[in-house]
Structures are given as structure tokens and as C-alpha cells.
Design a protein around this nucleic acid. Structure first.
Lengths: 198, 198
DNA sequence: CAGGTTATGGATAGATTAGTACAAAACTAG
DNA sequence: CTAGTTTTGTACTAATCTATCCATAACCTG
């Protein structure tokens, strides 16, 4: 009996995600969100209750989709461990290039949110912490497999190497926002793997 | 004949810098800046003309002081090249620990600004680009010296290695804001150097 | 087709924002 | 001590921000 929605909630969250991603939380206005989603204020507040809650949904959507793609690459049994790490870096670089405009990328929403909000938004911080842990766990599995197979020569434990690779990815994201091009990012990734392969 | 200022302009810029550093550009209000500097609105606008201009001054102050300290470490002729790189990482880690509150650091103002503003603030972007270039240049000198001395085994050219180290530093900054503790940051730095030393 | 329920659009509220106007205070040079 | 200049505090403006209110439209079920 109720009047049904004329829009797809997931599409709206996706559009909001892209806006927050490109502009950050504070610099995104509710009107920006209306324009991006094509919805009116009423529909947005009726569906998502607040800007902050819509952001939370957008961030969850991001980690569930974008970063999940990277986890899929790490889980790909078809490739050897090091090949998976290379593929993951390649995906990061492709992502940076895909969002490039005026010589700079918009980076990664989780990195951007860590920098802008983690210190004063516990809800966002919790989502980010969980995501980091998931990524680190996936990396540890691949690294340990690589060590067993002899592909990874580093004697450092998988925990430390996973943390390190996570940091490198974050650094590449910042570099992309700072204007690094594909060749620069590729050379960062290649160099980073030297620490594992030797 | 004119009435003199009762405050030190540099101290005001420094206080503003810390506020922008901790909270970001957008989330810092002019009232925050009044509270942090101890000045009234009139004094701030009379001296700095706008929030944006004060931010520009604060960012310049940051790169001139905080990052200059790191450049000083890289130029320290007393130490061997690799020792300089280790000292630089140690300084980064100490900096992250010094601004830690509630388990997270506030990172680095240049990284934070790259993430929050570089894409839509050409003035900030220019300052950041120059700073990255200065840091990369100093790193290249140290790396080349290390390669000549045989301390750095990597055959990659100094440009690529400098870019890589810069990215790692940025990644450590993000990790610090994400909650990484001293041991975690130290392990990232140590692992990162494996790529140069072998 | 009618009744109940929700979605929607437009107007609006209330707070907060960056920035300004202005008068009075304060200082120094003569 | 006084004239001249700048600083400074207070009050204010105008815009913008998030969020809400309410009347109307739209839809499904029975």
C-alpha cells in the first residue's frame, strides 16, 4: 500500500560515495549530494536520516566493493603469491589512473577518510580499522604462502611485511593525489617488492 | 606613530598551523583560529586577510620548519648515507608519536593537505609540489652517495628510490593516523630499507 | 476505485560560517 | 601632552549549512 521509491537506494549510495571520495566529507554539501544522486532533500533525509549516516553508508559501500576487488585478487588461487601481489599493485595503479583529473587522482576513500576524519569520528574509525585488518589478514596469507614457496626471500614475519605493503599502498595513494603518474607509481610498487623478493 | 601589535605574528601562524594540522582546513573555523592564536577576529583579518591566506602562511611555515628538520638530517655529513635515512625515519616516527592522542596521530600537514585540498586549491598544490621536489632532491643525493659507497645495493636509479622512500613516509603518516604504534611504524621503516640495502 | 501509507518537492527554520564596519583604545614621535 | 596612525573588541552582515515541515502526489492492496 505504501508508495514505492522511484530510485535505487544502492545507486544513490554509490553516487554519494563518489562525491565524498572526490571532495571529502566536510567539503561535500547536502546540495552536492542531491545533485549527485538526483534526489531531493526530502528523499535523502527520509532514506538516510543525516549527512553523516549517508557518509557511513557510502564508506561501507566503498570497502565492500572497491577494496573487496583487491581482496579477490589476493585470493586468486590461479596465480603464484608474488604474482598476486603484483596484480594487486597493478589494480591500485589502475584505480589511481581511473580517477585522475587535472593531473591528480582522488586517491582512495579509506585513506582520505583516515586522514580527514578518523581522529574525530569513531564510527568511521571503526569501519576503517576493520578494513585495514581485513586487508592485512589477506596480505599475510599471501605473504606466508610466498615464503613457503620460496618466492619471497625476506625473513621478516608475515605480519610485518603485510603492514609494510599496506603502508606502501597508502603512500602510493597519497602520491597519486600529489600528481604521480603511472610510471612513477609503477616504479614505487616495483621497488617496494624488492624488500620482499630481495 | 602607529600602535604596535601586541602579539607575535610568527607565534600566531604557528598556532594556526597546529589547528589546521589537527583538524584539517574545512573543519577549522575562524573561531577555532581565534581561540588557538588568542587573537580577536579583527586582528586575524587585519593581519592575514582571510582564512585561506592564513592557511597558506601556516602551510609555508610547516614546510619551512618541520620538513626542514628532516632535510637537515639528510644533509648531516657526520653520518653515513644509510644512517641518515635511518635517522630520517626515526624522526618521522618520533613526530608521529609526539602528536598522538587517543591512539592516533594527526599525521603530517603536507600529507593531510595533499589529501584534503591539493585537487581544488592550486596555491596549496604548488607549495606541496615544491616541498615534494625538495625532499626528493635531498633523498636522491643521499641515495646516490650510498650507492657509490656500496652501502645501498639496489641497482635502481636514485630517482626511483627517492620516490619510493617518499611514498613510504607518506604511508607511515597515514598508518599513524590509522592507529599504528611505534613498533608498527618502526617495522615498516625497517622493512622499507630492505629494498635499498638488500 | 477507494483508502491507507509513503515518497516527494518546495518552502523554511535555525544555526553556523567567513568576513566587515566602526568606534574606541593604545602607542609613538615630535 | 598631543596628533596621527594602527590595533583591537564588539556588534553586525550576508551567505551558507544541515535539517525539518507540510501539503500534495503517487502507489499498492483489497
Amino acid at each position: 500500500m505504501p508508495r514505492p521509491r522511484t530510485f535505487d537506494e544502492n545507486r544513490a549510495v554509490d553516487a554519494a560515495m563518489r562525491t565524498f571520495w572526490a571532495n571529502g566529507y566536510e567539503a561535500t554539501t547536502t546540495e552536492d549530494l542531491c545533485a549527485a544522486t538526483g534526489l531531493g532533500r526530502s528523499s535523502i533525509y527520509n532514506t538516510f536520516t543525516s549527512k553523516h549516516e549517508l557518509f557511513r553508508r557510502a564508506l561501507l559501500h566503498y570497502v565492500a566493493t572497491m577494496n573487496a576487488t583487491q581482496l579477490g585478487i589476493l585470493d586468486d588461487e590461479e596465480r603464484s603469491p608474488v604474482e598476486r601481489l603484483r596484480a594487486m599493485f597493478a589494480a591500485v595503479i589502475d584505480g589511481e589512473m581511473a580517477t585522475r583529473r587535472d593531473g591528480r587522482s582522488i586517491g582512495c576513500l579509506t585513506v582520505n577518510t583516515t586522514v580527514e576524519l578518523a581522529g574525530r569520528d569513531p564510527e568511521a574509525a571503526e569501519i576503517l580499522d576493520r578494513d585495514v585488518e581485513r586487508r592485512a589478514a589477506a596480505l599475510r596469507v599471501v605473504i606466508a604462502a610466498g615464503q613457503r614457496a620460496g618466492e619471497i626471500a625476506s625473513a621478516r614475519d608475515a605480519h610485518a611485511l603485510a603492514r609494510y605493503l599496506n603502508a606502501v599502498i597508502g603512500g602510493m595513494r597519497v602520491a597519486g593525489q600529489g600528481g604521480a603518474d603511472r610510471a612513477a607509481l609503477r616504479s614505487i610498487a616495483d621497488t617496494a617488492l624488492d624488500a620482499l623478493i630481495g
